[in-house]
């Protein structure tokens, strides 16, 4: 899913959690001290790290392309308002941050990223959120994005036959209704495989886990 570039560089081997923290740190520093020398240094550092990780130049440009027009507008506005130095600062800072963020994505497997995320969210326990449930929610999301995309494609085919493929309502309503009907079975399937993060031994699944709808109504 993520355009991961395999490798064994120090950038690849750095634990994902540390990479994210470093990235957040870099962002905070650049915004706290809006100085051109810092922004350029960050840009240089980004270039150095991309080289170290062995990322092809094409992928580096891919990271910047979505921002190209925003960068252009920003630089023009800044140059007009505060002179070209200010324009350069904004552009360099944004480019550096986007490149560094892209580097994290390119050098980390999404599975590792998610695992780090789950560990990183362990503190949620203290505000009453069970990290195991967060972990399941993350995994379920990744599992069902392609399923929903496939349902959407199927619905689009069906609506095309009726000449409705340009209508977002005609596309979205059946997708959402099918998704909601699926949710009953998915929840039942999870409980059927002994999922029990709260350790509520003995009791039947929580009341709302039971079928809210008649199972005879086929999804």
């Amino acid at each position: 899913m993520t355009p991961y570039v395999p490798g064994d560089s120090p950038v690849h081997r750095c634990p994902p959690g540390r990479k994210i923290l470093l990235l957040v740190g870099a962002g905070s520093v650049l915004f706290a001290w809006p100085r051109l020398d810092l922004a350029l240094a960050a840009l240089g550092l980004a270039g150095l790290l991309y080289g170290m990780a062995g990322i092809p130049a094409r992928l580096v440009l891919d990271q910047l392309r979505p921002l190209a027009w925003i960068l252009a507008v920003l630089v023009l506005v800044q140059v007009a308002l505060d002179g070209w130095l200010a324009g350069l600062l904004v552009a360099a800072r944004l480019a550096a941050l986007v490149l560094l963020a892209g580097l994290v994505t390119l050098t980390t497997r999404s599975a590792d990223l998610i695992e780090a995320l789950q560990r990183g969210l362990a503190w949620l326990r203290f505000v009453g959120v069970n990290p195991a449930k967060v972990g399941l929610a993350i995994a379920l999301t990744l599992r069902f994005i392609p399923v929903l995309a496939a349902i959407a494609a199927e619905v689009r085919e069906a609506q095309r036959a009726r000449g409705l493929e340009r209508s977002l309502v005609a596309l979205t309503v059946p997708v959402v209704v099918r998704m909601l009907k699926m949710s009953d079975d998915i929840a039942a399937a999870i409980d059927a495989r002994s999922y029990d993060p709260d350790g509520t031994d003995g009791r039947p699944p929580s009341p709302r886990t039971r079928l809210s709808k008649d199972p005879h109504v086929d999804p």
Binding site: R143, I186, R193
Partner: peptide, 18 residues
């Protein structure tokens, strides 16, 4: 539920991890 397993009609609803 440990003693009795359950297989659903639509495997897409039963496979929960990616």
């Amino acid at each position: 539920r440990r003693k009795v397993g359950f297989v659903f009609q639509n495997p897409d609803n039963q496979i929960v991890l990616p």
